[in-house]
Amino acid sequence: MDLRLSRLPGLPGIRIASRVLLLPVLATAGIGDACAYTITIGTGTKAAYLRVGDGSISGGNYNAGGTPAANTTVNLVSVAVPANVVGNTVDQAMTGTGRLTSDLDGFVFCSAGQVYISAFFRLPTTANQSATLRATSPTTLTSAGGDTIPISQISWTSSGIGDTGAQPIPAGTFTGGTQTLATLLRNTWNESCHTFRYGNDAIIAAGTYNARVTYTLATP
């Protein structure tokens, strides 16, 4: 996921571009209909799947035998900050783009402006193993002129339409370096919707600030 913040002279603004990262599923397994945020899936050939933002699936939804596939779409998360509130410490909500439906069953799981994230780690057995979802980010967003904004100014909340319990991929803040976002039990489909925000805690110099965050799903 690419992060880009822009502050224009005379009209301060913030813009965040999100690159979707998708790891292709190696095989498929059928499951029953469901639209909860954590669902048990059937055993099958060992495979790992991660979708952040947009994604592709062929042959129908996963619960109907579909196969997720790689997708190189770049999604955008952005916010325009009015000049009279720049640096006033009030969080600025960001609006994301991208598909809002789950590849599990086609359910519209996220609301407009959120970023959909889903993952699973499938095994041919029910061995007690888990995969680890991590995000790796630089410590700052940096402009061409060398000005910086701490990456910790970017945070997110986590939810899902129809959900009432804790999310499998919970709320957090980028810390710089590699951080663990979630531990996901084998043979479960996990999905959450992230709403990003900018902390707006300082008056920043005009310019475009960039950083890249890489999501990975590590398996035993």
Rank of each mutant, 00 (worst) to 15 (best):
M1P: 10
M1A: 10
D2R: 04
L3H: 05
R7T: 05
P9C: 11
P9Q: 03
G13M: 08
S18R: 09
R19Q: 10
V20G: 08
L21F: 11
L21W: 11
L22E: 15
L23N: 08
P24Y: 15
V25H: 02
V25D: 15
V25P: 01
A27D: 04
A29C: 02
I31V: 12
Y37K: 14
T38G: 01
G42K: 05
G42P: 10
K46D: 09
Y49P: 02
V52W: 06
G53V: 03
G59E: 14
N61G: 00
G66K: 03
T67D: 06
P68E: 02
A69N: 10
A69G: 13
A69W: 04
N75T: 06
L76G: 09
S78L: 14
N84L: 11
N88F: 10
Q92M: 08
A93I: 13
T95E: 09
G96T: 09
T97N: 15
T101G: 07
T101P: 01
L104K: 01
L104N: 00
D105A: 09
V108D: 07
S111C: 03
A112N: 11
A112D: 11
G113Y: 00
S118I: 01
S118V: 12
P124F: 10
N128E: 12
Q129N: 04
Q129V: 03
T136C: 02
P138R: 08
T139D: 06
T140C: 02
L141C: 07
T142A: 09
T142W: 06
A144K: 08
A144W: 04
A144R: 07
G146W: 07
D147Y: 05
D147F: 05
I151Y: 05
I151R: 01
Q153R: 07
W156F: 13
T157G: 15
T157M: 04
S158N: 15
D163I: 14
T164V: 14
T164C: 00
P168Q: 00
I169L: 08
G172L: 13
G177H: 10
T178C: 06
T180F: 03
L184Q: 08
N187T: 03
T188Y: 03
W189N: 12
E191G: 06
E191D: 09
C193S: 02
C193G: 06
Y198W: 13
Y198T: 06
N200W: 03
D201Y: 10
D201H: 06
A202T: 14
Y209D: 04
Y209K: 07
T214Y: 09
A218S: 10
P220W: 12
